[in-house]
């Protein structure tokens, strides 16, 4: 089935002559989900459920196979993470997902050539027609909940800086950011940030956030856009070669381009994982082989 889907996409791209392999051109396909996940109803406040709360041990887990992203060049030759274990619960208002995967190395500290471990859950904003599951399509947006180990560490230990990444690094002086005090040296943070381009541009990657989960929309590969809402909370933990991540959000939110989950209904869902140690980032990632489904019980 998956081979057929790949072939279909490749052929579509050839017909349209899409040199950059942008999937906007690719038509949606009603692929049968591989994994059917149930989000179990629990009489507990799911908005506050912890990563290692006892209740998770009584919740069924689903094995979600992952494979190399195959739609957009560059495509990875190999990926580090080949399986996710997914659990889900809800209380009628909030839904939580718990993802567990094997990753021998924790990559949560910034480095010049380092890449962060990361994971994402994706929903179609509308299901009819169903968008292409790798990043959606033009006018058929997807809603992505993206977690990054770097951002988790920022939230836990304070926003990582060059000084935390390279404690032995010395620099004589930063413009407007002086080591001495006195007349003419007092500058506001905004004035100092003028010399830090990403911060001056308020790039979402460059500034601290309250939540470890970034919410985004996409309408095809390369169109990812950070939403200006942070409705999703999360918690992550790495030990003994395993990442555990909990993502919680309201089933319903007041936003036209967010996923709305309904009790008693099935919603398509997709997953992606990046192994930082292998320099996985962007399209160099492991993805679920198609839309899976989650039944909100």
């Amino acid at each position: 089935m998956i081979k057929k889907l790949t072939l279909y996409i490749v052929l579509t791209m050839m017909v349209f002559g899409v040199g950059q392999a942008f999937a906007e051109e690719v038509k949606g396909t009603a692929e049968k989900p591989f994994v059917e996940i149930t989000s179990y109803h629990k009489d507990t406040d799911v908005s506050k459920v912890g990563i290692n709360d006892n209740l998770w041990s009584g919740v069924a887990s689903y094995r979600q196979p992952l494979e190399k992203q195959y739609l957009v060049v560059p495509k990875p030759v190999e990926v580090g993470v080949k399986e996710l274990v997914v659990q889900s619960i809800n209380d009628g208002k909030y839904i939580a997902f718990r993802l567990v995967w094997k990753d021998a190395t924790e990559n949560s500290s910034i480095k010049v050539t380092g890449f962060s471990d990361a994971a994402a859950i994706e929903f179609p904003v509308k299901t009819d027609p169903l968008p292409q599951y790798i990043m959606g399509q033009t006018d058929m947006p997807v809603h992505i909940l993206y977690w990054r180990a770097w951002r988790s560490k920022d939230t836990k230990d304070g926003f990582q800086t060059i000084d935390t990444a390279y404690p032995n690094l010395t620099s004589d002086m930063y413009t407007f950011d002086y080591k001495v005090k006195g007349k003419g040296t007092e500058k506001t943070q905004e004035e100092k940030d003028m010399f830090i381009p990403g911060k001056a541009a308020v790039n979402p990657r460059s500034v601290p956030h309250k939540q470890i989960i970034e919410e985004l929309n996409a309408e095809g590969p390369g169109t990812l856009k950070t939403k200006n809402v942070e409705n999703t909370t999360g918690e992550s933990h790495w030990s003994d070669g395993t990442w555990t991540l909990v993502i919680r959000r309201p089933l319903k939110v007041d936003d036209a381009v967010s996923a709305q989950l309904v009790v008693g209904k099935k919603t398509p869902i997709a997953f992606a994982v990046w192994e930082g140690e292998r320099k996985e980032s962007a399209g160099r990632k492991a993805v679920s082989p198609s839309w899976a489904e989650v039944l909100v019980q």
Partner: peptide, 25 residues
Amino acid sequence: RCRGYRECVRACPYKKPMFNAETRI
């Protein structure tokens, strides 16, 4: 717009795009 994927850092043969670890782009 940059999200720090560093595909440019990999691709430029002259190695002239550079990664700012502080801003992550």
